[in-house]
Design a binder for these strands. Structure first.
Lengths: 153, 153
DNA sequence: AGATATTAGTCAGTGCACTGAGTAATTCGG
DNA sequence: CCGAATTACTCAGTGCACTGACTAATATCT
């Protein structure tokens, strides 16, 4: 069996795409705050007081990864974490003032970065590209939690 | 400043796409051998005797990551590594017999997995999608090594 | 030939991502 | 109301990915 051309493999290209994004993020947005960390800040800006599990659901991070990202953001003083008085299992998360400031600054830079990142594609292609990324990711997501699709039926 | 919709951010979607691929890979291809490990096997099937640096170039892995992946594949007995007699800095890499067998088996499963992974898109869309992934990744890659573009000019 | 630069690979440190096992709190069924 | 299941979170272990500092070997430039 001969070797294969990896550039025809979507998985290989997905990994390369993420590496490309990482490169642009660290040069154009921030070297300290990573893209997943920004995602958590953004989720808490939209819905203050979320618990860790739900933040993970919004941003696409599993329970362990959320815990790590949250602990880093806490160490930097960008979010605070308090036990839910009504449900002692939960930690409720909130942005600090500095967290909100950082979110605002990074939102502006991220918009510029996204523009550069997608610049190889025409405007029409860009929306097609984002749509395809969503469709492929969402389809695989349903393999992980087939109950949701069943409930919806 | 209000929160943003992450599903319009290509970086967020790139990360989700890779997670989706990881899920399909572990369920449909292998739980032991990862996709980057398969990439290395594939590169050595195509060009036996490559050194680590060049393997990294082919597969899209930096020097440190190649070293780790190669050491895991070596531990599993899938590749072997010898000092280059002509250039004592290099290690030359080759598949073992078992490495070639594993590569063959995974190539078949990977083809099936790719088919499922892309199934949300029509055939026409699939080639457009792969093309766009390549164009965006390649463009960012040139920011990392601008000399190459200069040499080509 | 000898000082200098470049190159291949290693190593330590940081961060994302997943799994499986474990703990504490809440909910549910009888 | 009490034992069993579920839920939120933690922790240890594995693997990819990058940076910066380091070593050893080769190449280059007087």
């Amino acid at each position: 069996m001969a070797a294969v051309d990896l550039t025809t493999h979507p998985g290989h290209l997905a990994r390369r795409l993420q590496q490309a994004h990482y490169l642009l993020w660290t040069t154009m947005v921030s070297e300290e705050i990573t893209s997943p960390q920004y995602g958590v800040l953004n989720a808490l800006m939209a819905e203050p007081g979320l618990d860790q599990r739900t933040v993970g659901e919004r941003v696409g991070l599993d329970r362990s990864t959320v815990a790590e990202v949250v602990s880093r953001l806490g160490r930097r003083g960008l979010i605070e974490k308090v036990r839910d008085a009504e449900d002692g299992r939960r930690y409720l998360l909130r942005l600090t003032g500095e967290g909100a400031t950082v979110h605002r600054k990074l939102t502006i830079r991220t918009a510029r970065m996204n523009h550069v990142f997608l610049s190889p594609l025409s405007d029409a292609e860009q929306s097609v590209f984002l749509d395809m990324l969503r469709r492929v990711s969402d389809a695989a997501e349903e393999l992980r939690s087939p109950e949701r699709a069943a409930v919806r039926a």
